[in-house]
């Protein structure tokens, strides 16, 4: 169970949230101008990063607001939580704006 610090509501259990996949995938500006390959990229291709991954979550049973999260897909550590529309933080310099770490409960082998 991840403990996720909602920017509006504070730390809450993962079960209150829904996952939205890769962040920063913009809707094509001219969809009708895309080739089939480009349209496939937009519809079906997403990064599948092993490591730090920028992704979207929504606090479904709380404020119902979307936000972005930088999370390690191996350790599941949450490295940053930031607002929709903000660029992905540069973790070399950024101050991690969440105090909540993941709680890998039941994470037995």
């Amino acid at each position: 169970m991840l403990l996720i610090s909602c920017p509006n509501c504070g730390p809450r259990d993962e079960t209150e949230f829904h996952y939205g996949g890769q962040a920063h995938v913009a809707y094509p500006e001219n969809p009708d101008a895309l080739t089939d390959r480009q349209w496939a990229e937009y519809l079906f291709y997403r990064d599948n990063t092993k490591g730090a991954f920028a992704e979207r979550w929504v606090h479904s049973t709380g404020c119902r607001q979307w936000f972005n999260m930088l999370r390690d897909t191996v350790s599941y550590d949450i490295q940053a939580i930031y607002k929709m529309g903000e660029p992905r933080p540069d973790m070399e310099r950024a101050v991690v704006n969440t105090t909540a770490a993941t709680t890998p409960e039941g994470a037995t082998k």
Binding site: L2, D13, H18, Y19, F53, T73, Y76, A107, T108, K109
Partner: peptide
């Protein structure tokens, strides 16, 4: 589990 992960473990609430 709903999120992308390579950690070979998931969340307990799923269980």
């Amino acid at each position: 589990d709903s999120y992308n992960g390579y950690g070979q473990r998931g969340s307990f609430h799923v269980i």
